[in-house]
Design a binder for these strands. Sequence first.
DNA 1: TTCTATAGTAACCTATATGAAACTATTGGA
DNA 2: TCCAATAGTTTCATATAGGTTACTATAGAA
Lengths: 117, 117
Amino acid sequence: MIELKDLPDCPVETTLFLISDKWKVLIIRDLLNGTMRFGELKKSITGISQKVLTQHLRAMEESGLISRKVYAQVPPKVEYTLTETGMSLKPVLDAMWHWGLKYKSNNTDNRKTSKRD
Amino acid sequence: MIELKDLPDCPVETTLFLISDKWKVLIIRDLLNGTMRFGELKKSITGISQKVLTQHLRAMEESGLISRKVYAQVPPKVEYTLTETGMSLKPVLDAMWHWGLKYKSNNTDNRKTSKRD
DNA sequence: TTCTATAGTAACCTATATGAAACTATTGGA
DNA sequence: TCCAATAGTTTCATATAGGTTACTATAGAA
C-alpha cells in the first residue's frame, strides 16, 4: 500500500505520482464508462502491450484506483473497475477532455487565419 | 509547429500528447504564478537537470504552451511565460491539485480507521 | 485427443528518458 | 588579468519503460 510519507508535498505532484502516465490515464478514461475485462482494455487502448497493461493495472490496484475481480472459471475472466478514488478522477479527465478539444479547435482556427505556414 | 493531423482523435489523448509528462506539468504549475527565469525554474523544480529542463521548455514552446523572451544582456536573462493556451490549462492543474489533496486526506482517514496495517 | 479461449508470467532485448560533467559566450567587476 | 554570473549545448553513461516471443493453466468443444 502506498503510504502518506511516500507522497510529495505538492498536491499536483501527488496526482502526478499516481497518474503522470499516458497509459494509466487511458485506462482510467476507459474504465470511467464502466467495468471492463482485461481483453477489452487491451483492445481498447491502442498500442499497449499485454505486459505493460498488466504492470499498470497492478500499480493502479496498489494505489487504490481500481479493483480487480477474478471469476473462477475457464477460460479466465477478470474484471477491472474504478474504485471510488479512481472515479473521483473524473473531473481531472473532464478538464483534460475539454482542454484537448479546445487546443485542437484553436489549432484549426490559427491555421485558417495564419499568414504564414 | 504541431499539426492537427499529428494529434490523436481522443481529446484526452491530445492533452496527454502535450503534457503527459511530470516535468511539463510542474513547469506549468510554476508558470501559472507568473513569468519566471530559467534559473528560477531550475531551482523551483526539484530534481530536474538543466538539460531536461531545456528540452521540455523547447518542446512546450513548440507546442505553443509557453513563450520565451531573451534579453540582450550579459550574463544572459531569459524569461518564460505561459501563453494563453498554456494558461488555459489552469482548470486541469486545479483539478489535479484538488484530487491530490483529497487522495492524501483519504489516505490519512483510511489509515486511522483501518483494521489491518 | 487436440484445439481454443483468456489472462496472465518470464526472459530477453531495445528504445527512450534522464543524469553528470565539461564546455561556451560575454561583460562587468576585483 | 582573471573570475563570476546566466543560460545554455554537447557528450557519454545509466536507468527506466516498453516490445516481442514463448510459455502456463484448464474446461469444454470438435
